[in-house]
Design a protein around this nucleic acid. Structure first.
Length: 555
RNA sequence: GCGGUCGUAGCUCAAUUGGAUAGAGCAACAGGCUACGAACUUGUAGGUUGGGGGUUCGAGUCCCUCCGACCGCGCCA
């Protein structure tokens, strides 16, 4: 059977050759057909005539009409593939014959979970870092957004054949770990002596209390009479390890797995940071001033040069970051970094790193914008400074993993979002995640009700020509968009498109379901409609899977 | 002051990366359950895309400039 993609390629080729003959010079190598924004214009449209109009010095509409006519004389199969091809306002719009969309359903059933997946590796290697946090407390809501975005982007890229390494950096090298150690030590002493002073700039969160208990069980009273220089390393390390384990457990629960958990401290001890500084120096980008090493960031558009190694010999945070991104680019073709809203001002400094190493543009920075959490119409405070954080785990307890993951990617990353906890846990028609899951469960229910003979016929998909109703073809058309949507998610780093697409598929299925009875009297029609339903189920399941949301058979 | 991210319907958000008449969901208004899951569904109304200028066949999208919101601007991380 001729595949759906081959048919579209035939059409595109016909118009490409026609355009080349009408305007001999300046024709693009191939005519790009895209679904128009307004479906009333047809299934696919191309703006080739508009692009050629200037060079040909002729009105685009006239060119478009000539290209259409020529395409039909060049490709005798066109009348069978297309219901119509029209020129309007310089665009060429085509409407494909029902057989095209029917073949699409067959393709989905034949390929199953592999539908839309790249057959061969793209050969591209990409580092994708997201989630990275200080190991000084539990993960908070914003990190839920970062994790959802990053994991879905990674899954979509892998779906498209790109080799992705997901990375999390444990920021355990700086002074905040000492603060953690002092805070934990104070809590530990307070168990026996409630009057023991808590450090001014300590971490006040209650999450340290169970850790203090654990520390007491581990250390007994061993450190109670010793000076800070003795107990600080032990408590900092103890707290760091415990909190990293907690953060990892939250990621696991959230369905996010990392290929690499990179300790920042280990980057220093392994010499990786020094290697990065050396690489900078080889390029003449290091300057010594006041005993410190400065990176000449102003050469790449920064407003000031940046210290990478302090006068006491310790690298700065930025120095470590420069080195680590250098390391990433040694290992990969490009790197993507998803950071939180509190690092806006940092983005320019990140982007100049690849430029400094001669690979401008090799790092994409995506910002997961701020989240305002709302419960019962009231803002839930989430200020880390005051210690009253809203841990991600609490959100998961309240609304569940599925709703959280769907909500976090529903909106484009660079727009600040409002997360309505009340809506997210509502099991109602207002809640988009349930709407999509419900569609999947409903198809599973139809499948259970279908007699075995019908199920077998549907799987063979031999009566798809019986799909002719507008709702049937509209749904088939929608399902065919799936591979393009996933590609756009991977290329544009925009998983919200997948979430929206899944909602649209669910809505189109509901339309179809309302208009066409699946399990009816006519065996062939029923089989065809069940085929369409099962193809829908596959696409919904794949879409949800890429978002890290379950696709349940019953709810 | 310098830099970053933004500003789209009453609310929450889209807009296939420069395409045709800017679209969905809530909320509002008017309807619909004797079908396989009504956790649904049909329709109406809602806009000078913050303001102004520019680039071109064509701008919500790119450039400039104001206005406004948030966030950075340390030999902190």
């Amino acid at each position: 059977m001729v595949s759906q993609a081959d048919d579209l390629a035939t059409v595109a080729l016909a118009f490409t050759r026609a355009a080349a003959e009408i305007v001999p010079d300046g024709t693009p190598p191939s005519v790009a057909f895209e679904p128009p924004r307004n479906p009333a214009f047809g299934d696919y449209a191309t703006n080739v005539a508009l692009q050629l109009a200037k060079r040909a010095r002729r009105p685009p509409q006239q060119l478009a009409m000539e290209i259409v006519a020529r395409a039909y004389t060049l490709e005798p199969r066109l009348p069978g593939l297309l219901d119509e091809a029209t020129a309007a306002a310089g665009f060429i719009n085509v409407r494909l014959a029902p057989a095209y969309w029917q073949r699409g359903v067959h393709t989905i059933l034949a390929q199953g979970e592999a539908f839309g997946r790249a057959l061969t590796p793209s050969g591209e290697h990409v580092s994708l870092e997201f989630g990275s946090a200080n190991p000084t407390g539990p993960l908070v809501v914003v990190q839920g957004r970062t994790l959802s975005l990053g994991d879905s982007i990674a899954k979509a890229m892998r779906f498209c054949g790109i080799d992705v390494t997901t990375e999390w950096v444990i920021n355990d090298a700086g002074s905040q770990l000492d603060t953690l150690g002092r805070s934990l030590y104070a809590r530990y002493r307070q168990i026996a002596d409630p009057a023991f002073p808590f450090p001014q700039d300590g971490y006040p969160g209650s999450y340290l209390l169970p850790l203090a208990d654990a520390a007491r069980a581990r250390f007994a009273g061993a450190y109670d009479t010793l000076p800070e220089s003795d107990w600080l390393p032990a408590f900092a390390q103890f707290g760091r390890d415990a909190l990293v384990r907690e953060q990892q457990a939250t990621c696991e629960r959230f369905g996010v797995r990392f290929d690499r958990w990179q300790s920042e401290k280990e980057l220093h001890s392994s010499g990786a940071v020094e290697a990065g500084i050396v690489a900078l120096r080889e390029r003449g980008l290091i300057e010594e001033r006041d005993g410190a090493l400065w990176m000449r960031a102003t050469l790449f558009g920064d407003d000031k040069d940046r210290v990478v190694v302090r006068s006491d010999g310790r690298p700065t945070y930025y120095g470590g970051d420069v080195a680590y991104h250098y390391d990433k680019l040694e290992r990969n073709d490009r790197a993507i970094l998803i950071i939180g809203p509190d690092h806006h001002g940092y983005i320019a400094r990140i982007k100049l790193i690849p430029a400094a190493f001669g690979k401008p543009g090799a790092i994409d920075v995506l910002i997961a914008q701020q989240i305002t959490t709302i419960r019962n119409g009231e803002v839930v405070s989430s200020s880390k400074r005051h210690g009253d954080v809203l841990p991600l785990d609490d959100v998961l307890d309240e609304v569940g993993v599925d709703a959280a993951r769907f909500f976090f990617v529903m909106m484009s990353a660079d727009s600040p979002m409002t997360f309505d906890l009340t809506l997210a846990k509502e099991q109602s028609n207002d809640n988009p995640v349930y709407y999509v899951q419900y569609g999947h469960a409903r198809i599973a229910s139809i499948e259970r009700n279908a007699p075995p003979a019908l199920r077998q016929a549907a799987a063979r998909a031999t009566t798809l020509e019986r799909l002719v109703a507008p709702e049937e073809l509209a749904l088939a058309r929608r399902l065919a968009e799936f591979p393009g949507v996933v590609r756009s998610v991977a290329m544009g780093l925009a998983p919200h498109r997948l979430a929206r697409y899944a909602q649209t598929v669910a809505a189109d299925f509901t339309q179809f379901y309302g208009a066409c009875k699946v399990l009816g009297d006519d065996f062939d029609v029923s089989a065809a409609r069940l085929s369409l339903s099962l193809a829908t189920k596959t696409v919904l399941s794949s879409s949800l899977g890429l978002l890290g949301v379950r696709a349940p058979d019953r709810m």
